[in-house]
Amino acid sequence: MEPIVVAKNLTKSYTKGLRALDNVSLTVDQGKVLVVMGPSGSGKSTLIRTFNGLETFDKGELNILGIKVDSTHDERKVQRIRRKVGMVFQQFNLFPHLSILENITLAPIHVQKRRQTEAEEYGMYLLSQMGIDSHAKKYPNQLSGGEQQRVAIARALALRPELLLFDEPTSALDPERINEVLDAIRRLAEQGMTMVVVTHEIGFAKDVSDQVLFMDSGKVIETSPPNIFFSNARHERSRKFLNQLDNQ
């Protein structure tokens, strides 16, 4: 079976020769969870944002769900990818002028052209899966951070995506709100959703990941299964990073 994500030698440079991505290659198979770790500025966010075309790259090739894109960033292909890939952001980015349910039904109604009643029914189902169906008529600012992030996950699921991207989904949350979001992501992993997750949560990464990819300065330092990465990382740089996380 064809992998869900194949990245080949992705390279993105900023002016002054600084490299956000330096020859990054990776593969994510169907139903697998890839956790991306690394210090801030290492290019993790840039990497997963290339997967749905929020970032462009200068060199290399990307194959997402069989749709190939290169540095020309073909708008039509990117649009096709976005209909099959959901994304959850660090800052939630819910639409503040729309109700919770409207946030979720927006894309199904206007992108997939589904009927409103059908979109609302499925939206309510997703909200109940996230345990927040009682908030459907409220507005984002009436919810806690953890609840908002669960709405954002429901919104990403509304297009019935084949791949979910998480960009530090718990970094903007209060510590006591982190677990409710991580639990929701764990359940998705158990259901077999293919995911790429950028996170600093070691415990969560150990549970949920099939592979851990460690980045520094735009380069992939190592890709290992979690049991190896967290107990006996192959690379000196990875061990140093994990030590620093432990000491926090």
């Binding site: 749905n52 075309g53 929020l54 649009q79 976005r82 209909r83 890939v85 959901g86 994304m87 952001f89 800052q91 980015n93 819910l94 639409f95 927006l106 894309a107 206007h110 992108v111 919104r155 990403a156 297009l159």
Partner: peptide, 12 residues
């Protein structure tokens, strides 16, 4: 973030 959110949902 609002631009990124609507783009990631496939809206034109």
């Amino acid at each position: 973030g609002q631009w990124e959110a609507f783009r990631s949902l496939g809206l034109s």
